[in-house]
Write a protein that binds this DNA or RNA. Structure first.
Lengths: 104, 104
DNA sequence: TATAAATTTGTCAATAAATGACAAGTCTTA
DNA sequence: TAAGACTTGTCATTTATTGACAAATTTATA
């Protein structure tokens, strides 16, 4: 899925022919704020993922993967992290996993 | 550098034979909080990177790379992001770059 | 074109998260 | 065992995020 998470929500919303107001209500969210989310001006709050999955009958795990990759993608983008540095970051994540093991 | 950023600071501090109190003072920071940073219980505040580079005579760009890869590595770790998903995240970062271009 | 719905933008108070500060504890070592 | 070094816990302060609402602007339609 090569969109931001906000664009993804908009896609889902349009496909299901819901207005901002309608979807916002289902998500227990202000429609103005949902607009900002779709336009990438605010983040979608992770705690609403289950509700979002329910509304559009999506697999929660997959949806969470969409969310996580969006968040990390954003982080990569905002920090100007190159592919080379990303490789280093991945190694550091791996290192943290080994730390965790040792702690047990 | 396969350490967390906190461990890296500790390494630098030990190599230069400074106590927590001494380094903390140079960084204008409480020594108890520096201890937490070194032990991964708090984050180092990005705005202190220039000072840190100055203290240890490091290249700021390289230091910032250490910092960024640590942060993203932590993000990857905390979200249990697999290599496969990380690839997706990288593509999404790339997508954001194209969005930015279009906006100009 | 008028008007109604849909969406966007701006603002600010409320809430949540990060940081600073300090006291009290443990660990080292001289 | 006393002093210095480090760690941990707590809490007030600061900063960032979110919720809520008013006021545009845009889009669709009569």
């Amino acid at each position: 899925m090569n969109t931001t998470f906000g664009e993804y929500i908009r896609l889902l919303r349009n496909k299901n022919e819901l207005t901002l107001t309608q979807l916002a209500a289902k998500l227990n969210l202000d429609s103005a704020n949902l607009s900002k989310i779709e336009n990438g001006k605010r983040d979608f709050d992770e705690k609403r993922l289950p509700k979002l999955a329910e509304i559009f009958k999506l697999d929660l795990t997959e949806l969470r993967n969409e969310y996580v990759t969006d968040q990390i993608g954003k982080h990569i983008y905002e920090t100007n992290c190159t592919k080379q540095l990303l490789q280093v970051a991945e190694e550091k994540a791996e290192y943290r996993r080994t730390l965790k093991e040792k702690a047990l």
